[in-house]
Amino acid sequence: MSSVATTPKKGFDFKAFLANNGALVGLVVLCLAMFIATPRFLTGPNLMNIGIQVSTIAVMAFGMTFVIVAAGIDLSVGSIAAISAMTSSYWVTTAGLPDGLSIVVGLAIGGLCGWVTGAMSAYGKLPTFIASLAMLTIVRGLTLVISDGRPIATGDSVSWLGGDLGFMPVPILILIVSGLIAAFVLNRTIIGKNAFAVGGNTEAARLSGIPVKRVLVTVFVISGIFAALSGMILAGRLDSAQPTLASGYELDAIAAVVIGGASLSGGVGRISGTLIGALVLAVIRNGLNLLSVSAFWQQVVIGLVIAIAVGFDVLRRKNVRH
């Protein structure tokens, strides 16, 4: 189209790839740096370790991506993870009900909690930040009530979630499968496309006949279910559901989504980006551990990484739109 003479593009446009995949490039650079700093980074057991570490945050963040794409935020996911792990364990260990159903019960509780947050926000007109903040406290409180403040041993099903299948850790399998499902739902189904439209411009979506309130409730239900899954993986690894399980995880999940390129003002986000965001966080933690950097300094580094990653993204978008 343009009359400006440019060298014809040969195959791969490296510059455009860099611009569009900043987080991925950052992840690769980060991995190289870690490998140079400590050869132990790139060993099989350590990579497995990172995979297991990342699975809980990533699964939670997959659900969070739906909420953020719809221009909301879900602060309750850490608490939902805990209550789901707790109820599914209570179901088997304390109540003595069939173990086969415990995972379903956990997921249902997660979905129900998400439904409540979504309903508060869609029909009660509370901002999602406030509705989910309220649920963060309510659900954590209920978890403590159910458990009486003590850990409960998990049933066999939930323990299996934290175990191995042959040489493969189950959390990594769940990470892969749930990531594929999340990407499919977000990109190919009405649910996902509606979330993008609502997040991009709520009023335009409504005037086009998209059921905005139902969409809002749905994304919170999805977020709740993924949070529940994440909580049960976490409990399964410990073989017990702790009442303080996953507390503070909501911030990591949000950070992963945002590092992955989603916009907090809605309408933009990718599951692959979220996975990369979660990996960035996990690789930094793992690498700093290998380098024996103190846990206190790790927090400082993670904060800086979030600021830098999102800062780059803002700059990039400004250049694109000029």
Partner: peptide, 20 residues
């Protein structure tokens, strides 16, 4: 403010009413 999702594509904006 009421008609379009500005960051979405032309195709998506045309398609909202027929998506469901």
């Amino acid at each position: 403010t009421q008609g379009l999702v500005l960051d979405a594509s032309v195709a998506e904006n045309i398609g909202y009413a027929t998506m469901a």
